[in-house]
Design a binder for these strands. Sequence first.
DNA 1: TCATATTGTTGTATATACACAACAAAAAAT
DNA 2: ATTTTTTGTTGTGTATATACAACAATATGA
Lengths: 81, 81
Amino acid sequence: MIYNRVKLLRTEKGLSRKELADAVGVNFQTIGYLERGDYNASLELAFKLADYFELSIDMVFSPRPFKSIAQELADAKRAAQ
Amino acid sequence: MIYNRVKLLRTEKGLSRKELADAVGVNFQTIGYLERGDYNASLELAFKLADYFELSIDMVFSPRPFKSIAQELADAKRAAQ
DNA sequence: TCATATTGTTGTATATACACAACAAAAAAT
DNA sequence: ATTTTTTGTTGTGTATATACAACAATATGA
């Protein structure tokens, strides 16, 4: 199973599933499936989503659980100084 | 269609399809299909392959055709100086 | 050259990604 | 409070990723 941050990224942008779905050209229910982890995105959809969020694929998808955003930010701050 | 560099990376390592397939846990014919562009890898397989080659996903897969290696090396050299 | 390994092709079968519909539950907006 | 929007659930259908088998074509190696 591949983990993803689709829900987090989508809600941060204040988008509904329908809006995100339209932006990447899939059915709005497909976004729901991904967010709930019912199945993985195809590689093609993964690229479209990463592209839409202007992130690299591994910022959006990962074979390992993502760190929390709090952790991510703390790490980023630590790395920067 | 997603482009990939699987064949290039595999042959550079001197691996047969069977060997690469075993390393990432798929049938050797699946590697053949990917190399010929018959279909895309799943996101899961894409991660395994990128992992195996110790590269990020977008070094192995891309929604746009890859630059030739010659071009890639020339660009890298240019960027470095 | 002959044997062996690798690759390409075709075909069948299965699992999974995705579309689409209907409806219930929950959240948001009025 | 009630209407509207968003989300979750279930179900059915289709396309595609993958497994596996058989065999032909190529390449590799002894």
